[in-house]
Amino acid sequence: MKTENTVWHNQHVSKAQRAELKQQKACLLWYTGLSGSGKSTIANAVDALLFANQHHSYLLDGDNVRHGLNGDLGFSDQDRVENIRRISEVAQLFVDAGLIVSTAFISPFRQDRALAASKLSAGEFIEVFIDTPIEVCEQRDPKGLYKKARAGEIKDFTGIDSSYEAPENPQIQIKTADQSIEQCAQQVVDYLIEHGIIAAKKL
């Protein structure tokens, strides 16, 4: 809870200066999609490409964050909202450090993704919709979660008994059912090059 004694402390080094030192523009790649759509897989592939070409990036994965920072949260709608609120704040700090930061979360509600976008400057929030049909996600079911949800063993599961609000105008839309992981990752990298966030190298 904020108090009247909490005052914002301005820093001498700016976000632009930090990004310039890294020879890139800071941004947030916000991967959203159903469980099993390929968010983490593609985000990791993009992160590897960026690292290989000496760009400064970091990936905040939904499952990993729930092991620590958000370990006290469940999967009710209320907890999902708080989950995204917290990660939005953390991602903002990473962007302020001049990084290309990725978040791989289902983040099912448009309002919450809009909140994350509102914390950043124009052009810094890049919504990446991993557009994979639920039928394909269920076929993959890498964690066996859809099977458990269909059996009633998991409640509030997105796409089954909890809603997913697909992005209406994402900056990047990736159809994983039609492309390889490498093609999907390159689509994201091409966007970053096209919009001047990174320079074209040997990606």
Rank of each mutant, 00 (worst) to 15 (best):
V189F: 11
Y31D: 00
E194Q: 15
E82G: 09
R66Y: 07
A26N: 14
A45I: 06
G152Q: 03
L93F: 10
Q173N: 12
K143H: 01
V13C: 11
D79W: 10
E168P: 07
V90T: 13
A166E: 14
S107E: 03
N169I: 04
E135C: 05
V65S: 03
R140W: 09
R110D: 10
T41A: 10
D79Y: 08
I84N: 08
W8S: 07
R140G: 00
T158Y: 08
I160G: 07
V13G: 09
L28E: 05
A48M: 14
T32P: 10
A199N: 13
Q179A: 11
H12K: 15
E20D: 15
H67G: 15
K22T: 02
D190L: 14
T158S: 11
A45W: 04
L99R: 04
V101D: 09
A19L: 09
A19P: 09
Q171I: 00
F125W: 05
G38H: 12
V189M: 14
A26R: 01
Q183M: 04
R18T: 11
T103E: 02
A52W: 01
G144H: 03
I134Q: 09
Q92V: 02
N70T: 12
R18K: 15
D161S: 06
K175P: 00
H56E: 12
G62I: 05
G144W: 01
F157M: 05
G196F: 05
I174C: 09
F51C: 10
L99D: 04
Q23T: 10
W8M: 09
I154T: 05
P170T: 03
E153I: 10
V46F: 11
D161L: 07
L50M: 14
K148S: 09
K15P: 01
R110V: 03
T132E: 04
L28T: 05
C137T: 00
H12L: 15
T32A: 06
K147R: 15
P167C: 12
S57C: 15
E4P: 00
A91H: 04
F75Q: 03
S162G: 05
G74P: 07
A114R: 12
L93H: 06
Q111M: 02
D79E: 13
L73D: 01
N5T: 09
P170K: 08
V46E: 03
R110P: 08
K147I: 02
N70A: 12
L50T: 03
S88A: 15
E127A: 09
E182R: 13
E82C: 09
I174R: 11
D178F: 12
V7L: 14
E20L: 13
A26M: 03
G98N: 08
H195S: 06
F109T: 02
G36A: 04
T3H: 14
G33R: 03
L60W: 02
D61Q: 13
F75L: 11
I134F: 04
K202I: 06
K155H: 07
Y164M: 12
E153P: 00
L73M: 08
Q92E: 13
K175F: 08
R66P: 01
W8A: 11
S57Y: 00
S14W: 00
I154Y: 02
P167T: 10
I130M: 14
I174L: 15
H195D: 05
S163D: 07
K148C: 11
N5K: 11
D47P: 00
L93Y: 05
S163T: 10
